[in-house]
């Protein structure tokens, strides 16, 4: 891991604390987020009930009553943020503990990738070039948010960086693969959305009935590979 990024701890309401690394989205800041997240998942702090890793921050949601009951003489925020300082000082040198590479098939057929043609035209590329650029890189899952299993991955090749649609579509199909700025992501559920849609995966990103419902986790690496329409239909026999 590269040199540790400076951090800043602040309250996120009266029952959560956020630790922020630097003030930009960088790989090293996110690696520190994920390392701390994995550490706190394995060794939870007393009274903490939820962890929310993001691009360059990790938020701990805690139970005010449980902590105040145990430590009546300090403010709950001071208690949790103090613990957090101690943990961070101990683990700044540590690497992320898990590193997974996950390969995801994507069908870049224009019937799925409804923004593929306009995106290619915008960047003066052919559709084939856009597809090749999109699946030539290995992406990092920076965070999961927006809805269950929605992974924010980055960063895409500079040649295909494309802003969101100014007004979101009413409905984007589950499995749709999109680009928003430097990010790429997949919609786990059909929902409204403003990302530039370039393809669709038959893989389920979020399966509520599974013990581990979410395919991707913060810190994962992801490679996309192209499949044709008939392969898509074979993999997705609906």
């Amino acid at each position: 891991m590269s040199a540790p990024v400076n951090y800043h701890i602040y309250p996120c309401g009266d029952h959560a604390v956020t630790i922020q690394f630097g003030d930009r989205i960088t790989l090293s800041a996110n690696q520190q987020v994920v390392a701390l997240f994995q550490h706190l998942q394995a060794q939870p702090l007393f009274g903490v009930r939820d962890l929310i890793p993001a691009y360059n921050s990790l938020t701990l949601v805690y139970d005010i009553f449980t902590i105040k009951h145990q430590y009546p003489d300090v403010s709950v925020y001071e208690q949790v943020s103090g613990e957090l300082h101690r943990v961070i000082d101990r683990i700044t040198e540590k690497e992320e503990t898990t590193h997974r590479l996950i390969r995801i098939p994507v069908c870049y057929d224009v019937s799925f990738g409804m923004d593929l043609a306009s995106l290619a035209a915008l960047h003066q590329l052919s559709i084939e070039e856009v597809i090749a650029l999109h699946n030539s890189k290995t992406y990092r899952v920076y965070m999961i948010g927006f809805m269950p299993g929605f992974a924010y991955m980055g960063t895409v090749d500079a040649k295909i960086i494309t802003p969101r649609h100014p007004s979101p579509r009413k409905s984007v199909a589950a499995g749709s693969v999109g680009i928003a700025g430097e990010q790429t992501g997949i919609y786990p559920f059909t929902s409204p959305g403003g990302w530039q849609i370039i393809g669709r995966t038959p893989v389920r990103l979020f399966s509520p009935d599974q013990a581990n419902p979410c395919l991707l986790q913060p810190g994962d690496e992801v490679q996309f590979y192209p499949i044709d329409l008939s392969t898509f239909q074979n993999l997705n026999p609906v």
């Binding site: 996120c12 309401g13 938020t59």
Partner: peptide
């Protein structure tokens, strides 16, 4: 802003 956590009541 860079996206980060929000909670009940934010």
């Amino acid at each position: 802003m860079i996206s980060s956590a929000i909670t009940r009541g934010t």
